[in-house]
Design a protein around this nucleic acid. Sequence first.
RNA 1: GGAGAGGUGGCAGAGUGGCCGAAUGCACCGCCUUGCUAAGGCGACGUACCUUCACGGGUACCGGGGGUUCGAAUCCCCCCCUCUCCGCCA
Length: 428
Amino acid sequence: MLDIKVLRENPDAARAGAVKKHMPDRAAAVDRALALDAELRAMTPRIDAMRSEQKAGGKKLGKLNPEEREAFLQTQKELKARLSVLDDEEKQLKHNLAEQLGLIPNIPDPEVPDGKDDSQNVLVREVGTVREFDFKVRPHYDIGEAQGWLDFTRAAAMAGSRNYILFGDLVLLHDAVLRFAVDLLVERGFVPIEPPLLVRDAAMFGTGFFPGGEEQTYRCEKDGLNLIGTSEVPVTSLHSGEILSEKDLPKKYVARSACFRREAGTYGKDTRGLYRVHQFHKVEQVIVDIASKERSLEHHESIVQNAEALLQACELPYRVVNVCGGDLGVPQAMKYDIETWMPSRDSYSETHSASRFYDYQSRRLNIRYRPEGGKPLFCHTLNNTVAASPRILIPLLENHQNADGTINVPERLRQYLGGREVLGKPVF
RNA sequence: GGAGAGGUGGCAGAGUGGCCGAAUGCACCGCCUUGCUAAGGCGACGUACCUUCACGGGUACCGGGGGUUCGAAUCCCCCCCUCUCCGCCA
């Protein structure tokens, strides 16, 4: 949610922002919101004055003698009738305004490149060397199925497409990388969290996934709850409605959770393997801090570095890209994606997504803090992936494969695998 | 799932139709007094919106939403949450 005051002063920025994000329908919400706001502002003083009159009249009425009372009661009733019409109008206006405000996307920062989709993201840096193989490189699903680590057929039979079953050492590797991700962040001062996986609409709205993301969300209609697509949702919502002390900020959290995504509208895209699946596990870092752009920028770099540290520890080549306007989501002001080299895709593909929001989410979630001796302000929030698995298993299996189908374990992960250096048996 | 109790300001806790945006205590902040591992006195002390150059004034908010009433923290309805007991259960 944008600050209505900022919107009044500079509606062009909000409109241009929505256009840069290739969301023309949401750009139109700016003008609808401003019109409603003007109407509401015109009405408020009038309605307040009437309420004041009604209140004063009511108090007076209690002290009148019976005959005066009867006449005055009529006056009060008429006032009430007029007021209740305006009351309803005001309620409706407020509701409509909130609805339109909720549609307006966050304004992308100036350094966000123009572009319509991920093909126009801009390279920031490339780290690590893509390995030269002296044998035929196999995709992760061939290795996994040959090793008996992966079964897509039975998964589809019991759960539908875009599902998978992990077995044996791959389960252990999956767990190893996730646990390593948590440990890495705890070491860096993040507080680990085990969050709810089912959340109310307010949390989905507050983080900016609703409205708009309903189609991507599994919903338990009976209970009015939604399965999270990322723990960003419950973790960012943690302090919703609170006024935090400045001395307690920043809050740094790391959560491991299962994540669920319907992937509606992606039929025929990334159909093979572990790349795009309905259910996965993700270790996510979330920061809540004071309203300082400078601090947000610092945090943003640091959470990217945290993710890079994991990829480096896993000995995986990757690149960082600056995500273009058309590939940005509604609530983000700026986003870096990290793409890891995946031989079977012959490309760097997205494994991490680091976003800053400024106060966009905290306005929706009503997360504030009290600066030293001042009025409460809305916090800034940020988040980034640390590791998402099984997607991260793709580069792990493919980049570290041997000709016989065994997998070399990166040194830093070995402690999570009983010290083993190699997984699997020769199968090719 | 059944029965009951309850949700009030940072915390505790009073308030059952107008004198209540709300007693009192604690905490926090400012000033004064005093003095030494402290205490006492005085004052200020919620959030948001509108208005005023300013002092100030107005409105809304007592879990959320609706209703009754001239008037609701207080009465009624729905929802959410917490606690106790029973049932069921990973």
